[in-house]
Amino acid sequence: MSNQSDSENIPCPVTSTEQIPFTSEATPVVATPVTAPTIKVPVVVAEPTLQIVVESDITLAPAATEIKRVKKNVFLNQVKLVPVSFARIANTDFFRVTRAKLFVAGHIRKNIEYASAACNAALQDRIADIPFTGFTDLTFPQTPGGSTPILGISEFAEANFLNEKTQMDARLDKAFFQNLVKYNEQPFGELVAANFFELDFSPMMVAPEAAFRTLREKIVLELTVKVVQVQQVSLGAGSTVVTPVLSGLTPPVSTVMDPNSSDC
């Protein structure tokens, strides 16, 4: 019995491999001076904040006596830009978009924790998806001197010929076609921020400790998205980095530090 007990306490063998150290050194590089390089990068053409208003009823099973906590997130299924107005770029076949419709669709995922009528029962959890869809108008550029979406227009041309024998009718068996197709970078959207303002209540007022099965919610969602298009950008002096200003319940306050103050 003692030998069997000792064998059960022996740890299992593990195979290990000793690592061989490698030497490393800095790789020399050669810098080529470029005055104004041209790069191809995602360019933010718009960053709107959309106000989305949603009302819905959520059924709770089992019935609730008290809502403890509600956690929300946004999931976007669609951010699509449809241009409706253009301005030609010089004498080219490329156009800057000056006005467009932005279609946005998605859903709000709500995680509701609540207490049921049972005594000393565990908290209940209800997950609900509230869909929303709509559009907004965008004008470009959004700021003076800002970026705009750029689109190249495809063209189709046809040339017909006269009957060379009679010079009186058309040649239906002969034609010249020209077809120019420009392939554009598709503008796309990115989720930036979601600010929720919400009121949840039972449609029928109940007495304290009484149960209710329907939770009515009224949500005002301020949704901030980026509209981005990959473009060629020429770098040079004066480039800046911009940061969006998102309003909330407690916006940041700008203060000027006193140089004579001892505060760090």
Score class of each variant (00 low, 15 high):
125 D>R: 15
135 F>A: 14
73 N>A: 14
77 N>Y: 15
83 P>Q: 12
127 I>T: 00
147 S>A: 14
146 G>W: 02
75 F>E: 02
67 I>A: 09
115 A>N: 11
37 P>S: 02
49 T>Y: 09
82 V>W: 10
121 A>G: 05
61 A>V: 07
49 T>L: 11
105 A>T: 04
97 V>T: 03
51 Q>I: 08
96 R>F: 02
129 D>C: 15
94 F>W: 12
100 A>G: 04
68 K>W: 08
101 K>T: 00
111 N>L: 07
115 A>C: 13
53 V>R: 13
60 L>C: 10
100 A>R: 04
43 V>W: 00
121 A>D: 12
133 T>N: 10
111 N>W: 01
130 I>E: 12
92 T>S: 14
100 A>C: 04
141 P>H: 05
124 Q>G: 00
51 Q>H: 13
147 S>I: 00
46 A>I: 01
109 R>F: 09
40 K>H: 11
145 G>H: 00
99 R>K: 15
131 P>D: 03
55 E>G: 09
66 E>M: 13
65 T>C: 15
113 E>L: 11
118 A>P: 09
106 G>N: 02
113 E>Q: 10
76 L>I: 03
76 L>Y: 02
58 I>N: 10
134 G>E: 06
78 Q>V: 04
98 T>G: 01
45 V>I: 01
115 A>P: 06
87 A>N: 07
90 A>G: 08
68 K>R: 14
40 K>R: 15
69 R>D: 10
116 S>F: 11
126 R>W: 04
122 A>P: 00
61 A>K: 15
57 D>S: 11
102 L>I: 02
91 N>P: 09
95 F>V: 00
101 K>S: 06
76 L>C: 01
137 D>A: 08
124 Q>E: 14
41 V>P: 01
65 T>H: 14
41 V>H: 10
58 I>V: 08
64 A>Y: 05
49 T>D: 08
53 V>I: 01
96 R>D: 10
136 T>G: 07
46 A>K: 06
136 T>I: 07
128 A>S: 14
137 D>Q: 09
137 D>C: 06
106 G>F: 03
101 K>Y: 12
109 R>A: 13
40 K>S: 11
42 P>E: 04
61 A>E: 15
84 V>D: 13
121 A>P: 07
56 S>T: 11
136 T>Y: 07
87 A>L: 10
78 Q>I: 04
81 L>H: 02
100 A>W: 00
97 V>E: 01
38 T>M: 10
42 P>L: 06
76 L>T: 01
116 S>G: 15
107 H>P: 04
39 I>N: 07
46 A>F: 02
63 A>W: 13
131 P>N: 05
60 L>E: 09
81 L>R: 00
73 N>H: 12
71 K>R: 14
100 A>I: 00
49 T>G: 09
139 T>L: 08
138 L>K: 05
74 V>L: 09
43 V>A: 00
139 T>M: 09
